[in-house]
Design a protein around this nucleic acid. Structure first.
Length: 650
RNA sequence: GCCGAUGUAGCUCAGCUGGUAGAGCGCUUCCUUGGUAAGGAAGAGGUCACGGGUUCAAUUCCCGUCAUUGGCUCCA
């Protein structure tokens, strides 16, 4: 029998029999490794553990801790679930069933009018575990296109047939385990026995191949683990995540609410929420003034013609709030879905010189879009929202510099609010599909280069490039963050636009005394106040920095024993929690202080806020009035001093 | 918009197979209490999302609408 050389990640080389499997190699190292290993990379390609290796190869074994390990584990689990579903629903048709970030799903078409509901989950879980216990091996079989087509035609699985038809002959493989065979590239676990804990999570409709026009299949989501304990931990984590849900905290802290009567997706900001939001707005306003922005204000509606010019009518017209009629026949207004058209008209109100640029118009502009009902979600997806919008009209040669300045603002905000967990996505056009975009190649290249360079110069971490994700009018840079359930949301965005200046015929007179077209940058550091506050709530769990606190001040009674309180108060201020605050400020406490304790308390601390400079505390001594405000450090010293004085007295 | 689930007091929820509703927290009043973000007593608060149907009778069954929600599609 011939021998082959297997190279390990540490570059050591060992000889094995030809036809050895990854699992056997793992066994040769240790039996515990063999138990834990889930998949293997052969020459960088992900393989099954029991697929024979016939040539010299580099090898990497994957355990649960590796994404490759989880991938195989959940992929095999999807097959196991498919086997189970076929058992309960004979005649079921299968779409695709891939592993995902957390678990896996399978798209299926149930036979004649059958439905799966959450009530069916337990029996599916039980059966899956039962089948897993049989420790059926996953067997790979390379087949010809014809063979594959024959198999699935006989089975009547039209979705698989469609998939096979798009595959190249010679690259097709089937995987078989237990009573189930699937079209699959692999890799899979050695057998089902590794799957110990199973949870069916939810079901949903999903269009075949993501196409609304095609049939909607039933998507069954599940997750599995090699240990029951891990599933328990996972479910526990999900529960904990719910506690930080902005919808829950928003209600608890009385930040915002919705009313069925007012309408879906139209948030009502309650006093505390409005305070929080205004604090954020105020902060950005100041920053913007420093950066040369000029606040402007535009109306909430505009003539339909305005949006025809801007192109938004075409994009939003049908799917938006219907135009508003006036007493004049044929006159129509629209609720604004964007602020840009108004700002363009502002730019146009007088001739501009190249010396005037850049012009930066900023507005907290409320816009209305009739989002699909199924899309609405707390504050993150609503129908009326306020963008912290601004439009920069600049010369092409100013683009990069302006872009960098916008990144600076976004980073400043993220820093001030301790947002570290974000992804910056550079969205470029798809070079294969140039027709989809407007504007000259030259401008596109300049703009994309400007974004790429600006991003690099700012040293943005977690940057990804998404080709084909650009807007049709220009490339952009988006800042994405995840909510508690792991869903990604776009917050800050910077977009380069050549379209609107064209459509609105914006111009400036250059040094050459000729007319030129300015470039426009749309930007919104927060994205929208609604979504930003939602994410802020979830990131902080409702424990906002004090300068964002929805109360202007808090009164803390302090007895003679300063030392007892010093730590408590400092701790309180450092771990500021609105819930604590609300308790502290409750009538009960206030009443108590008034009724029986006030006279005994020599000092009242009035804790206020000062954005960006930290918390301030003013101390009032009974009968002596305000002793002035101080920052945290001063306050700590004050406490210490007072304590010493007190001791000296005694 | 589509597929599924949900909609009971301010909040979190119970209410099995139909006979007009409960608990905990919160709220109000009073009492107790120098350890107290405490205890006790009494009380207020719900046309059981809305509309229709089946039934002698519906919160409970059926249909529709609205809202919320997990996804899909779409987007800040």
């Amino acid at each position: 029998m011939a021998k082959i050389d297997i190279t390990f990640p540490d570059n050591s080389v060992k000889k094995f029999e030809q036809g050895t499997t990854g699992l056997q190699i793992a066994e040769s190292i240790s039996s515990s490794l063999a138990r834990e290993v889930l998949s293997v990379s052969i020459n960088g390609e992900l393989w099954d553990l029991n697929r024979p290796i016939n040539t010299d190869a580099t090898i990497k074994l994957h355990k649960w801790e590796d994404n490759e390990g989880k991938y195989a584990f959940w992929h095999s689990s999807a097959h196991l679930m498919a086997e189970t579903l076929e058992f309960f629903y004979p005649g079921i048709k299968f779409g695709i069933g891939p592993p995902i970030e957390q678990g896996f799903y399978y798209d299926v078409e149930l036979p004649d009018g059958k439905v799966i509901t959450d009530a069916d989950f337990p029996k599916i879980e039980a059966r899956m575990k039962e089948l897993a216990g049989q420790k059926n091996g996953y067997e790979r079989k390379d087949v010809s296109k014809k063979e594959a087509l024959t198999y699935f035609t006989e089975k009547g699985d039209e979705y698989k047939i469609e998939l096979i038809n798009e595959l190249e002959d010679g690259s097709i493989s089937l995987y078989h385990h237990g009573a189930f065979t699937d079209l699959c590239r692999g890799p899979h676990l050695s057998d089902t026995g590794k799957i110990k804990a199973v949870k069916i999570l939810s079901i949903a409709g999903a269009y075949w191949r993501g196409d609304v026009k095609r049939k909607q299949l039933t998507r069954v989501y599940g997750i599995t683990f090699p240990k029951q304990e891990m599933l328990d931990t996972y479910l526990d984590m999900l529960e904990k995540a719910k506690e930080r849900d902005h919808r829950r905290i928003g209600k608890e802290l009385e930040l915002f609410t919705f009313s069925q009567k007012v309408g879906a997706g139209l948030p009502l900001w309650l006093p505390k929420g409005a305070f929080l939001r205004e604090k954020l707005e105020g902060f950005l306003r100041k920053v913007q003034v420093k950066h040369g922005y000029e606040p402007v204000i535009s109306p909430h509606i505009g003539q339909k013609e305005l949006y025809i010019t801007s192109g938004h009518w075409e994009k939003y017209g049908k799917e938006s709030f219907r135009p508003i009629a006036t007493p004049i026949e044929g006159e129509e207004f629209m609720l604004k879905p964007m602020n840009c058209p108004h700002h363009c008209e502002m730019y146009k109100f007088k001739p501009r010189s190249y010396k005037d640029l850049p012009v930066r118009y900023a507005e907290f502009g409320t816009v209305y879009r009739y989002e699909q009902s199924g899309e609405l979600h707390g504050l993150t997806r609503v129908r009326g929202f306020t963008q912290d919008d601004a439009h920069i009209f600049c010369r092409p040669d100013q683009l990069k510099e302006e872009f960098i300045k916008v990144i600076d603002i976004i980073l400043l905000i993220f820093k001030a609010l301790d947002f570290n967990d974000y992804t910056a996505q550079i969205s470029l056009r798809d070079p294969k599909n140039r027709d989809k975009y407007i504007g000259s190649d030259e401008n596109w290249e300049k703009a994309e280069q400007a974004i790429i360079e600006a991003t690099k110069e700012k040293g943005l971490k977690n940057t990804i490039t998404a080709v084909g994700e650009a807007a049709f009018y220009g490339p952009k840079l988006d800042f994405l963050v995840k909510d508690v359930i792991g869903r990604k949301w776009q917050l800050g965005t910077i977009q380069v636009d050549y379209n609107l200046p064209e459509r609105f015929e914006l111009e400036y007179i250059g040094a050459d005394n000729m007319r030129h077209r300015p470039v426009m940058i749309h930007r919104a550091p927060f994205g929208s106040m609604e979504r930003f506050v939602a994410i802020l709530i979830e990131q902080t769990g409702g424990k906002f920095p004090l300068w964002l606190a929805p109360d202007q001040a808090v009164i803390i009674p302090v007895s003679e024993k300063f030392n007892e309180y010093a730590e408590k108060v400092l701790n309180f201020l450092n771990n500021y929690d609105i819930r604590t605050l609300i308790d502290q400020r409750s009538e009960k406490l206030g009443k108590k202080i008034r009724d029986n304790e006030l006279k005994k308390i020599p000092y009242l601390l009035i804790v206020g806020e000062k954005e960006m400079t930290g918390n301030t505390v003013s101390v009032r001594k009974q009968g002596e009035g305000d002793k002035g405000s101080m920052d945290m450090k001063q306050f700590a010293e004050f406490l210490k001093k007072s304590e010493e004085q007190e001791l000296n007295h005694k």
